[in-house]
Design a protein around this nucleic acid. Structure first.
Lengths: 202, 202
DNA sequence: AAAATAGTTGACCGGTTGGTAAAGTGAAAG
DNA sequence: CTTTCACTTTACCAACCGGTCAACTATTTT
């Protein structure tokens, strides 16, 4: 009973976008409210603090993004094909966002995580959790590549973390240089990371 | 003529530390002044804005750090040895800072760069510049490895960027997970990145 | 000694911050 | 129809933000 509202969903979506465009500290609750067309009182009806809004906004974004990830990492595809598709996806995703906003915006999860890791433990651990979910796709894929003799990583979990770190670092470089170029050819290095140990030990 | 002062140097050092510990947005001019034992009026005698203090603080930190980098990348050492030394250095550096502060603090240049890349172009470009200086060491080293037949990267500059991105991403992961473990074995993957192409093409 | 200069002091500014509170409104449940 | 309750509205708060200013002090040059 009582009335219904889409203010909550609007706030989540707007908060995610605004924080991705600038940063957590660079966006105020007032700005989020204004852009969402919601009064501040309503904001604090739905969310206890700015930080908890951020945590929920990022969780929500993951949920909306998950079907796309499932599609990219479909079991219908070969493991190397999935990795290749994912590399292209990362580039395309950054490219589209850069066209919309006029600057390279980087990885949203890593951005807020990197900004607040030492200051807000809940946001840090949510960021870590979302990045771990991402790495899980890589781990499963690399494990299958291994099984098919396409990769030579002794420790699959470590290899997934390494691939993730490489792509994360490249996306961050692209953001800091404000240049998408470094993102255009991720795949060969990803292949090198997961295949190198076999090759090197030859 | 006029009196002399070390307030400027104190502000630069304190600002760098405080921003590294938390973030640019998370530290106020008042806090920097208080920790440095300097009045706000003096702050604005030396620096025009908070942002320009940050830019100068990071440049200063680079200058202080450079001799250490020159030592790590000494021409007396073999190229792979330099890379190995650098990987250990990155880990030790993060470990020491983590012990001092109680949390993994990540790469200072990348942290401020990632936070403000879309908001403050001067800070973004200073961050990019410092990271490029870092990559230059890698580039020279990889070029020599190539010359000695120890690496098989067709594009040396790209390989240096890839190695840098991998380490950067791993340091960021360590910060977000607040766990140094991922940093303990950087070297094999670095070797794989610069050596893979030769090995793979066998 | 006096003038010129470099640095210090601390009060002050308007605007913004995250967050609160209380009264009001509209729709669904009884 | 009325009660109930989810949501909205708006005014408000103390604390803090980056930045300014004019008076003041210590040092060196002339």
């Amino acid at each position: 009973m009582g009335r219904t509202s889409d203010a909550r969903e609007k706030l989540l979506a707007v908060a995610f976008q605004l924080i991705w465009d600038s940063s957590y500290g660079g966006v105020s609750v007032d700005q989020i409210c204004e852009r969402a067309g919601v009064n501040k009182g309503s904001f604090y009806h739905f969310f206890g603090t700015k930080a908890s809004l951020a945590v929920e906004a990022y969780e929500q974004h993951w949920k909306l993004q998950q079907p796309e990830m499932d599609r990219l990492f479909s079991a219908q595809l070969g493991p190397l094909e999935r990795l290749s598709l994912w590399c292209s996806f990362v580039y395309q995703c950054q490219k589209q966002k850069a066209q919309e906003y006029g600057r390279v915006c980087g990885c949203p999860y890593a951005s807020i995580g990197g900004e607040l890791a030492t200051q807000d433990n809940e946001i840090r651990s949510k960021s870590a959790e979302l990045m771990a979910r991402n790495t899980k796709y890589l781990e499963t894929t690399i494990a299958e590549a291994q099984r098919l003799g396409l990769a030579g990583a002794p420790d699959v979990k470590a290899a997934a973390q390494q691939v993730n770190a490489f792509v994360l670092g490249t996306v961050l470089s692209a953001k800091i240089q404000n240049d998408l170029e470094v993102l255009r050819n991720l795949e060969p290095t990803v292949i090198a990371i997961i295949g190198a140990r076999v090759a090197v030990s030859l």
